[in-house]
Design a protein around this nucleic acid. Structure first.
Lengths: 396, 396
DNA sequence: TCGACTTTCTCCACTGAGAGGACAAAGGGG
DNA sequence: CCCCTTTGTCCTCTCAGTGGAGAAAGTCGA
């Protein structure tokens, strides 16, 4: 079937669409309160949007003591696809135009298998969501990949953990396959946009969003806009030196943050501790499953295992030191911690907070909340949907 | 006398004023090529600006084979005052509307004497410039101070090296004294704006400007705009930890970058080296003047003194390590090194470059120039003039 | 020296965005 | 049942902005 073909014709219409997306259904009068347009002009633009089918009028709103108002909302059949490709798993979700998640699938996956295999999987997951009746088709899709992206073209560049993706025309290829507009961005940026749209960072203009998963990265939002840097690698903090002459890192240097703390590093350290007999708890888990992951460390820590707690605290300290530098440099209004390791919870958060509050200047930390992300695994897919909706809800 | 009372009435006029500021005199036709307005509309706006006196038509331009064009330029009697307050000296300059420096004074000063004493000196310097016939009055002034500023109000906040300035209403007070609009910002931000306007950073949208003087700070330009952070302390990198458990710093922590490299730290280390007999060159200079500064170290290094060269290299390495982190994080298109220690020249630059190119990811450094500022001590005052002109050349 | 051509600038009529007021529609409350 | 409030519609007026015609002022070649 044919999907959303229209785009807002001007900035007013774009503004109205975004208000309806972020604020839900509204009457004309309520919209008028927010846009600083005369009622007549507003009526004209709303009528035009109604003609395009991007919005619909459905029923009367409750009266507040006067003429009853007609409710205006975004077309209820609009559907966005949000895809969050991680290193070891992929999230695919369908949202409506208000970016509410209607259906969400998660599957294990190995990003190193390359774009063709991964997108085959993504497309089959999208088909499954469609088959379940959640969507007749998609009006747009946002894709997050775990590496730098040349944003305007939607192409990954020199991604360290995903060889084979370098230069692959993700945007073009998926747009073809899905038959709808596609935007591509770094997964960390999408997480930041997700938390900004529907999570802890609502109404914060300058914040950092640190995602600790298999690797470690940082979404940067300045003045409400994502900062991507000149080559799309901004926020790539995994290879900042955290420990002088520290552990060797895959990048060739020593002491990189990622080599000392990340999902992968934590698993490696846990394995070492188990094999050296420093933790009965971890050794038991290793025997049971044959392998250890960050989840095992989290569980062991929750069970009171001192070695696991030490590992988390140690990693949190290293991460906190780096974040302290970034806080001094960037002076954000909020720091969000997210990603797979948020399961490590408050032990991790406490260690990070300690370092930041100790090392950064009081002026920068005085009013600085450091919190866990609110959306968990949906942050990425909501951010992806937000990315494409921002694009589609802008004048063509 | 009455000065510039008019402001542009709309965005078109603001655009035209900035074009004339940055591109110099232009004919109507040349302006038309740059603004995407119809000739008629352009003529209307130019006429209105002529009426306000903000621009003047002076004479005919050289013919290019057709009707001769009238040259349009910003009013030649417009004058901006640029003030750059450092820790130990102050720069005051007069510029015309094109931000060309017409006169420039530099005097030693101690910022710790407090705002009242400092501004007395600044005002007398401004009066001297006026008396020399360079200006009949000032249409606006930009002020740079060596510490964080609450930008909208133009008030320093919690400045570590300038007690007594905290909360002093710089903008309001100076506006009163000078009788013209005033804008206040951190000195490092102004240096960045200066290099952006007339120096190495022309036409670069995302760059960092590291100023190493008595202290050390970093101007951040993202998307062409200065990023100041939520409390105005963005770029305050002097207290990022450069050396774990390193030298004690005035801020209470250990190992801060500023404690290991800055004008003050360099002077301290040089004194130590001289007293311990590690450098004959420095000891001689110490005896001659009774004190050592960064300038002495620069001179000794230029004369081949190994100890001085080591000090510079060591400091450059520490600074480079920190900058490497910031480059990974921010992914700028250019890094500018400026401030008092640029006299240390290529020894310093080489050390910084080595660290950055070694530690940051190839994608971030691949096309990254790291250069010395081009404007030296005028960067700050040009940036200050640019700050106020940006303000005055915007719709009221 | 005289057209032919180019460039720059001005004038004028036309379009469309947007504001603001009058008014109609639809409710609540005394 | 009348008066007030709220919401939505309609109509007119203003002004920003476009585009074309043409005047003004030059260059260049014959």
């Amino acid at each position: 079937m044919r999907r959303m073909t229209a785009r807002p014709a001007n900035a007013h219409q774009a503004r109205l669409l975004k208000l309806l997306r972020d604020g839900g259904p509204n009457s004309r009068a309520q919209l008028g309160d927010q846009v600083d347009l005369s009622r007549s002009k507003l009526a004209v633009e709303v009528d035009r949007l109604l003609e395009t089918g991007l919005i619909v009028a459905d029923g009367l709103a409750a009266s507040r003591g006067g003429r009853r108002s007609h409710n205006i909302r975004l077309a209820p059949n609009l559907r966005f696809l949000g895809v969050d490709i991680g290193a070891t798993s992929v999230d695919v979700a369908v949202t409506n135009a208000e970016l509410e998640v209607l259906g969400h699938l998660n599957q294990p996956m190995d990003v190193r298998e390359g774009p063709v295999a991964v997108f085959e999987q993504v497309l089959s997951m999208a088909a499954k969501l469609r088959a379940s009746g959640l969507a007749e088709g998609f009006d747009g899709a946002g894709i997050g990949v775990p590496g730098p992206v040349r944003f305007p073209e939607g192409v990954p560049v020199a991604p360290p953990i995903m060889p084979g993706w370098d230069g692959f025309p993700v945007r073009e290829a998926l747009s073809q396959e899905l038959g709808c507009p596609v935007m591509v961005d770094n997964d960390v940026n999408l997480m930041a946009m997700g938390e900004q749209h529907a999570g802890v960072a609502r109404s914060v203009g300058d914040f950092l969003c640190v995602k600790i998963g298999t690797g470690i990265g940082c979404g940067i939002v300045a003045g409400g806009e994502v900062h991507r840097g000149v080559t799309g690698s901004a926020g790539d903090i995994g290879h900042i030196q955290a420990v002088p002459d520290g552990r060797p890192c895959a990048c060739g240097n020593r002491g990189c943050l990622e080599a000392h703390f990340s999902g992968a590093a934590l698993a490696r350290d846990a394995l070492e501790a188990a094999q050296q007999g420093r933790s009965v708890e971890l050794a038991t888990r290793l025997e049971a499953t044959g392998t250890l992951t960050a989840v095992d460390v989290a569980a062991a820590a929750a069970a009171g295992d001192a070695t696991s707690l030490d590992l988390i605290r140690e990693g949190g300290n290293r991460t906190g030191e780096v974040i302290a530098s970034l806080v001094s440099f960037f002076n954000p209004g909020l720091v969000v911690i997210g990603g797979g390791v948020t399961g490590l919870g408050h032990t991790l958060l406490a260690a990070i907070r300690t370092q930041v509050y100790r090392q950064s200047l009081p002026l920068a930390t005085g009013n600085l909340p450091i919190v866990l992300g609110e959306l968990g695994p949906t942050a990425g897919v909501i951010g992806a949907a937000r990315l494409i909706s921002d694009h589609l809800f802008s004048p063509a």
